[in-house]
Measured scan of single mutants.
Amino acid sequence: GIDPFTGEAIAKFNFNGDTQVEMSFRKGERITLLRQVDENWYEGRIPGTSRQGIFPITYVDVIKRPL
Rank of each mutant, 00 (worst) to 15 (best):
T58P: 08
R51D: 02
L33S: 03
T58S: 13
D38S: 10
L33Q: 03
G1E: 14
F15C: 02
R35H: 09
D38V: 05
I10C: 07
E29K: 00
G7T: 10
S24G: 07
N14F: 05
E8I: 13
R26N: 11
R51H: 04
E39N: 12
Y42D: 00
S50H: 09
I57F: 05
P4S: 14
T6A: 13
G44S: 00
G28C: 09
R26M: 14
G1S: 12
I10E: 05
V62F: 06
E22N: 06
E43R: 05
L67P: 15
F5I: 09
K27D: 04
F15P: 00
R45C: 14
P4Y: 14
T49D: 06
I31C: 01
I10K: 05
W41G: 02
A11P: 01
G53I: 02
N14A: 09
T49R: 03
D38G: 10
K64C: 15
G48N: 09
V21F: 14
F5N: 13
G7C: 15
W41E: 02
G7D: 10
T49Y: 02
V21M: 14
I63C: 08
E39D: 12
L33V: 09
F13D: 13
R65M: 15
R51Y: 03
S50A: 12
V21G: 14
K12Q: 06
V37D: 02
L67G: 15
I63Y: 07
L67V: 15
P56F: 02
E43K: 05
I2Q: 14
K27F: 07
P47M: 09
F55K: 00
E39F: 10
G44V: 01
G28T: 02
I10H: 04
G48F: 08
N14H: 10
R26Q: 15
G17N: 04
I31V: 06
P47D: 15
G53P: 01
I2D: 15
G28N: 06
E29T: 05
G53M: 02
M23K: 00
L67E: 15
L67Q: 15
E43A: 07
R65E: 15
D18L: 15
T19E: 11
G1K: 10
Q36R: 08
T58A: 14
I57T: 09
S50G: 12
Y59S: 09
V37L: 13
T58R: 10
Y59D: 03
T6V: 10
F15I: 01
F15T: 01
F13S: 09
T58M: 14
D18H: 13
F15Y: 12
D3W: 12
G1P: 13
S50Y: 09
F15Q: 00
F55E: 00
P66F: 05
D3G: 09
P56V: 02
K27L: 07
S50C: 14
F5W: 15
G17H: 03
P4I: 13
Q20M: 11
E8C: 15
E8S: 11
P66E: 11
R35G: 07
A11K: 00
I46V: 09
L33H: 05
G44W: 02
S24K: 05
D38Q: 06
G28V: 01
G44F: 01
D3C: 15
M23V: 05
L34G: 04
Y42V: 06
M23F: 08
E39K: 13
K12H: 05
G28Q: 03
K64G: 04
A9C: 12
V37E: 03
L67K: 15
Q20R: 11
I63Q: 06
K64H: 05
R30W: 09
L67C: 15
W41R: 07
Y59L: 10
L33Y: 02
P56H: 04
P66I: 12
I2N: 14
F55H: 00
R65A: 15
I54M: 09
T6I: 07
A9D: 00
K27P: 05
V62L: 05
Q20S: 15
G7S: 08
G48P: 06
T19H: 12
I2M: 13
K27V: 13
E8P: 04
D3L: 11
F55I: 12
D38I: 05
K12R: 12
T49E: 06
D61S: 09
E43Q: 07
P66H: 09
T32P: 00
D38L: 06
N16L: 11
R45H: 10
R45K: 12
A11D: 00
D38M: 07
I63F: 07
I54E: 04
V37A: 04
P56T: 02
G17C: 06
F13Y: 12
I10D: 02
F15N: 02
F13C: 15
I10F: 06
F5P: 08
Y42H: 03
V21T: 11
F13E: 14
T32C: 09
K27C: 09
L67M: 13
T49N: 03
N40T: 12
N16Q: 12
W41H: 11
P56C: 03
S24H: 05
Y59C: 14
I63P: 04
I31L: 06
G28I: 01
I2T: 14
P66V: 07
E8G: 04
G48K: 06
N40W: 13
G48C: 10
G1L: 11
I2P: 14
M23Q: 01
A11M: 01
N16A: 10
I63L: 10
P4K: 13
S24Y: 04
V37T: 04
R35F: 08
P47T: 11
I2L: 12
Q20A: 14
F13G: 07
G44P: 00
R51S: 03
N16R: 10
I10M: 07
I57N: 07
S24D: 08
E29Q: 06
I63E: 05
F13V: 11
V21N: 13
D18P: 08
E43C: 15
E29G: 01
E29F: 02
M23P: 01
T58N: 13
V60T: 04
T58G: 12
Q36T: 06
Q20G: 11
N16Y: 13
S24N: 07
R30E: 06
I31P: 00
G7V: 07
A11H: 00
V60L: 05
F25P: 01
Q52N: 08
Q52E: 08
L34N: 04
K64Y: 06
L34C: 09
L33M: 06
R35Y: 09
E29M: 04
D38K: 06
R26S: 14
Q52L: 07
P4V: 12
F55V: 09
T49C: 03
T19S: 11
T6F: 10
G17Y: 02
N16G: 07
V60R: 00
L33R: 02
G53D: 00
Y59K: 07
T32N: 08
N14D: 15
T19N: 12
V60M: 03
L34T: 08
I2Y: 13
Q20Y: 12
T49V: 03
V60F: 02
A11L: 01
P4L: 15
A11I: 02
R51N: 03
S50D: 14
T6L: 07
D18F: 11
T49I: 02
R45E: 08
T19M: 10
E39R: 09
D61W: 15
F5D: 13
T19K: 11
V21P: 11
T58F: 14
E43T: 04
E22F: 10
P56G: 01
F55A: 00
P66T: 06
I46A: 02
L67A: 15
V62E: 04
T32R: 07
T6S: 11
R26G: 08
D38Y: 09
T6H: 12
K12L: 11
K64V: 06
I63R: 05
F15V: 02
T58Q: 14
I63M: 07
Q36L: 09
V60S: 01
T6C: 15
E22W: 05
G44D: 00
T6R: 08
D18E: 14
L67D: 15
P4A: 13
E39M: 10
A9S: 04
R45M: 11
S50M: 12
G44M: 01
S24M: 04
T6Q: 09
P4C: 15
R35V: 07
F5E: 11
G28D: 06
D61L: 14
V60K: 00
R35Q: 09
E43D: 06
Q20C: 15
K12M: 09
G53F: 02
P56N: 03
F25C: 02
T19V: 08
G44Y: 01
I57W: 04
D3N: 10
I57E: 08
Q52G: 06
R26H: 13
T32V: 11
F5L: 13
Q36E: 11
I46Y: 01
E43I: 08
F55Y: 00
I57Q: 08
E29H: 02
N14Q: 07
D61T: 12
G53V: 01
R26D: 10
F15D: 06
V37M: 08
I54R: 08
T49W: 02
I2C: 15
I63T: 07
N40K: 11
R30L: 11
I46G: 01
I2H: 13
L34V: 10
E8K: 08
S24Q: 06
Q36G: 03
K12W: 04
P47I: 09
N16D: 14
P4R: 11
V62G: 03
L67I: 15
R26V: 15
N40P: 03
G44A: 02
T49H: 03
A9W: 04
I46K: 02
R35K: 10
I10P: 01
E39G: 11
E8A: 09
N40H: 14
K64T: 06
N14K: 05
I2E: 15
N16T: 12
P56W: 02
E8Y: 12
S50T: 13
G44Q: 00
R30P: 06
P4F: 13
D38R: 07
Q36Y: 08
